[in-house]
Design a protein around this nucleic acid. Structure first.
Length: 537
RNA sequence: GGCCCCUUCGACUAGCGGUUAGGUCACAACCCUUUCAAGGUUGCGGCACGAGUUCGAAUCUCGUAGGGGUCACCA
């Protein structure tokens, strides 16, 4: 089967998860059948046009690994792929409709149409263009147009009967023609509307399957009427369920109620593989029931018939779960390390050798659901031994285990091999010789090394940090508590030291905040400019 | 409101006339354990309702209800 599908977003605002969703299915279907996937920019709305958007849209698909076979930057046999560059084509095609009488020039002003709608509403009449301009004689239309009077061009739709089309998933859908008002084909600014450009271009670009969101169902008869007017073969229509907000009624996904920006998810540390996988499970399932699968797995078996029609709720918890699976199971450690490296650098962290980074990521990734969560937890590994922060709980543990820490400081300094087995043996031996409970030793040590009580296994911490840093940290932790115990009156020296530490900590925090601010600022600026509309397809 | 579409656990879904209605997330308990996670085991929880077709309906038909979408010189 020769298959051509397309994604046809409009360049407005932030690249939308809905665009990624529809693009994914179109891509999978085309690839499944060895066909072509076209990217077409629907930039016919000059009001909302955003010059940044095209590049961001392409960057989004690039990040996701969905590569168009044809598009504005790739090129292709049926370009150009920006509608704003195809105006001649539309003009040419609308002429044939004008000539055949399927279209006519309509001269109502925006004000007049507003008044019409207002009256319809007041009198409880059906909403929509009432066809008042369709019977203006042809020669008058031509004369007024030639005189430069502004006007739109409308399609003449039948008044009676109904228009039917086949939706691959829903079967035949019939819409009464009375519901189809004469839609505008070409706006008074000379640009085509979606309905017109979409049909002309899908035909010109040899699109065989129009896979788009369900919100287009009711306007499909307009497109069908156009195909017929031109005498063109209709593509197959596949309307995908609409992604929904997690609100009570499951309304159509919107950025007011949910984060719909793909960039935003990327910045939150969501992996492209995970986002794709998650999106694919919105309305789709693999025949063998696997829920974690790659884009290639999807392509290998993709069958539109398996798409379910209930509107799937975009559930952030599930997305994060899928992401966590990729983080700790699906992708190799080196891959995760590569992806997290720039984030750590952005946070102002540095390290000497790659093995250290690998070790850190290895112990942290089962404890995080996103890349940024790893970064957030990684502070004590990268901050200097005298500045990583202590929380109250950690101070208490250190205080309670003061004796053990002093003992261990000595033991670690004399330990020959600083590997996992040696450290384990040392700790076990210490616990046994003192006849105390393991946690009574391990918790203070953990707290001392990290400044917190939630952290990886003590053995891992000790081995990763290494002897020198472990000793420094134990020493620092012991001095930390003397100033923090509520019952201890701090000496002037201790107060001085505490102040110095606080200053150091503050400086460190400011350094990190500054590093992170740049990224956040860019994100905020980009999002501020966004419009709401999800793209077509 | 007119028109169109949809309806299996709280969420995502499997199911396409005969199943104790299965899986995943979430939630709960237990196990493991060195805290936090991860991991393991178990549990909780569903065919919107009503007719009909059939020996037999989650599966087919109709109706009702509920939800969504759409009615622009936006896509």
């Amino acid at each position: 089967m020769n298959v051509v599908t397309r994604i046809a977003p409009s360049p407005t605002g932030d690249p939308h998860v809905g665009t990624a969703y529809v693009g994914l299915f179109n891509y999978a279907f085309a690839k499944r059948h060895g066909g072509r996937f076209v990217f077409r920019l629907e930039d016919t709305d000059r009001e909302r046009y955003d010059a940044q958007s095209e590049a961001r849209l392409l960057a989004m698909f690039d990040w996701l690994g969905i590569t168009p076979d044809e598009g504005p930057e790739t090129g292709g046999p049926n370009g150009p792929y920006r509608q704003s560059e195809r105006l001649d084509t539309y003009t040419q095609h609308v002429e044939t409709l004008l000539a055949s009488g399927d279209a006519y020039r309509a001269f109502e002003t925006a004000e007049e149409l507003d008044a019409m709608r207002h009256e319809q509403k007041q009198r409880g009449l059906p909403q929509g263009y009432d066809g008042r301009g369709r019977d203006v004689p042809r020669d008058e239309q031509d004369r007024r147009a030639a005189a430069g009077e502004p006007h739109a061009i409308r399609l003449r739709t039948p008044d009676e009967g109904e228009t039917a089309f086949l939706d691959v998933l829903r079967g035949e859908i019939r819409i009464p023609n009375s519901e189809i008002k004469d839609p505008i084909l070409v706006k008074s600014d000379g640009y085509p509307t979606y309905h017109f450009a979409n049909v002309v271009d899908d035909h010109a670009m040899e699109v065989t399957h129009v896979m788009r969101a369900e919100e287009w169902v009711t306007s499909t008869p307009i497109h069908v009427l156009l195909y017929r007017a031109f005498g063109w073969e209709e593509p197959r229509f596949i309307h995908l369920p609409l992604l929904r907000n997690p609100d009570e009624n499951k309304t159509k996904i919107s950025k007011r109620k949910l984060d719909t920006s793909v960039d935003s998810y990327r910045k939150q540390g969501i992996l492209p593989e995970a986002l794709l996988n998650f999106l694919a499970t919105m309305g789709y399932s693999l025949p063998d029931g696997r829920e974690i699968f790659t884009l290639d797995d999807l392509i290998a078996t993709f069958d539109p018939e398996r798409i379910s029609l209930g509107g799937p709720v975009f559930d952030l918890r599930k997305l994060r779960h899928v992401n966590a699976r990729y983080l700790r199971e699906e992708l190799p450690l080196e891959e995760i390390a590569d992806r997290i490296e720039p984030l750590l650098r952005e946070a102002g962290y540095a390290w000497d050798d790659e093995d250290f980074l690998l070790d850190v990521v290895d112990v942290l990734r089962p404890r995080a659901e996103t890349l940024t969560e790893i970064v957030d937890q990684a502070g004590y590994f990268f901050l200097a031994d005298d500045v990583y922060p202590f929380d109250d709980e950690a101070r208490k543990k250190v205080a309670a285990g003061q004796q053990a820490l002093e003992d261990l400081e000595r033991s670690f300094s004399m330990l020959d091999f600083f590997d996992e087995d040696a450290v384990d043996d040392l700790l076990d031996e210490y616990v046994r010789s003192r006849e105390i409970k393991k946690p009574a030793v391990l918790m203070p040590l953990r707290a001392a090394l990290t400044g917190t009580t939630n952290a990886p296994s003590v053995t891992d911490l000790v081995v990763i940090l290494g002897r020198q840093r472990v000793l420094r940290r134990i020493g620092r932790a012991l001095s930390e508590i003397t100033s923090a115990l509520p019952d201890d009156k701090p000496t002037p020296e201790e107060e001085q030291q505490a102040a110095a530490e606080a200053a150091a900590k503050k400086a460190e925090e400011e350094r990190r905040a500054a590093a992170a601010a740049a990224g956040r600022a860019a994100q905020a600026a980009a999002r501020a400019a966004a419009g709401e509309e999800p793209s077509e397809s």
